[in-house]
Simulated scan of single mutants.
Amino acid sequence: MIGALALTAGCSTREAQTEDAAATGALSIVDQRGETVALAGPASKVAFTVMPAPSIFAAVDRSYDRIVGINQSTLVANKGGMFATMFPESAESAVVAGNDFVPNVETLLQLDPDVVVQWGDRGPDVTAPIEAAGFPVVGLEYGTQDDLEQWITLFAQIAGKPERGRELVDWQRTELSEMRAQVAEQRTPRPKAMILSRAGDTYSTTSPKGYDGFQFDLVGADLVTEGFVSDAGQVSPEQILDWNPEVIMLSGFDESVPADIYADPRLASVSAVQNKRVYKTPLGGYRWQVPSAESPMMWQWMHQILYPGARGGQFRDEIRATFDNLFAYRISDEEIDQVLRFDLNKDAAGYDQFRR
């Protein structure tokens, strides 16, 4: 909650508040592969081949100072959202992997990180080249809230700030419990909803087996893709018509905007289109739709989209407190509008609840 966040929040526009490392000696970290990773001490240079990780590490550290390499997709998100405003150096970070997560070993050798964070559930093709080059690898797994909490814990260990990791995990769990309690009190029918991506005339969506399934259920929505199986998630307009979602949330990983959906005659009779309930998902420190340090903000945003006015107009204050706590940054009202994609969502049904 806001009060708990404010206890650790800074008070200037960009504070480089740092903590003394909890440990100054050697570290032994067990990653999500079950591998023990030995470090000489808290890392001073960390490279991330995986996309959501740098913003989470920055939230743990309240700084970008240790991050030396990132994924190409992360660089795009940094430049397009708030991250480069909070941490200007993040817009110039070296790229150490692309969308396939194959590491650029030559760049890693130039950067000489103390540790590299890579997916640990995609086989040795993406981890072995890093280890062969002599760098310790912390392997991650993806898909659940528990995975996210383990990422936070691992990054806190890497940074030598275990207490900070516990604070952030406790905050996420508190917000999770409060959201479940709020949804349990809802007396209106659960809206049918979905995540949608668009590339040209082709649509794709997400599986309920992953984090989206968890999030939609958590915030009180029925995810219409239950039981849906498709190559690369591709979905036809006819299938979307059959599902007839009441709310559509557009992916932050492509350039699709609500106007594109409204303009597609193939979707004209979909409930979300007819009632102007198509929304571009927020972009804060990272794209909110995937697991991140900001996930509780995504849960709240989703819940208020589904049930307008559910949190009594406090959301902007909660965003402000969250950015202060996570990133040591005092976000302005104009920047909150940017995070919430007001330029794209301002005319959508119910979006007035987020106005300043």
Rank of each mutant, 00 (worst) to 15 (best):
V76C: 08
L108R: 01
L109A: 12
E106F: 03
I67S: 03
E131Y: 02
V30L: 14
M51Y: 11
L39V: 11
T49W: 10
V37A: 08
G81S: 03
E131G: 03
G41K: 11
T144V: 05
L111H: 07
T127R: 00
A23N: 15
A53D: 12
M51A: 11
S73A: 14
V115W: 00
Q72Y: 09
S28F: 11
L148I: 07
D146M: 08
T107E: 15
G123R: 05
L111Q: 09
A26G: 12
S63W: 00
P124C: 05
G34S: 05
E106T: 11
G81F: 04
A77M: 10
V76E: 13
A58N: 10
G80S: 15
D20P: 15
G34W: 00
V126M: 04
S93G: 13
Q32G: 02
E131V: 10
G143L: 00
A43F: 12
T18R: 15
V102E: 14
P52I: 10
G139V: 00
V96L: 03
Q118K: 06
Q72I: 11
F48E: 06
G98E: 02
M86S: 04
E35D: 13
S28H: 14
A43M: 06
A133K: 04
Y64T: 12
R33V: 03
D146S: 13
G41I: 06
E106P: 00
L108M: 08
G139A: 07
I29N: 08
D125I: 13
L109G: 06
D146H: 08
N104H: 06
V46A: 05
S73I: 13
S90Y: 05
D121G: 09
G98Q: 08
N104P: 09
L27M: 10
T74W: 13
F48H: 08
V116G: 00
R33W: 03
I56N: 06
G69N: 06
F135E: 01
S55C: 07
L108G: 05
M82A: 06
D147F: 06
I29G: 05
A43L: 10
E106M: 03
Q32A: 01
S44P: 12
D112L: 07
A40H: 13
P52E: 07
S44T: 15
A97T: 04
A40K: 15
P136N: 11
N78I: 09
G81W: 00
V46R: 02
E92S: 14
D31E: 04
I29D: 07
V126W: 00
F101C: 09
A23S: 14
D20L: 15
P113E: 06
M82D: 01
V68L: 04
S63Q: 02
D114E: 07
G143F: 02
Q17L: 14
A26R: 13
F83K: 00
N99I: 13
V102H: 14
V126R: 05
V117W: 05
A40S: 15
V105P: 01
Y142S: 12
V126P: 02
V37L: 08
P88C: 03
V76L: 12
A133N: 02
G123L: 08
R62C: 06
N78C: 09
D100V: 12
N71Y: 03
A91Q: 06
A47D: 10
A26L: 12
K79W: 11
R62I: 04
F87V: 10
M86K: 04
P52W: 09
Q110S: 15
T74P: 04
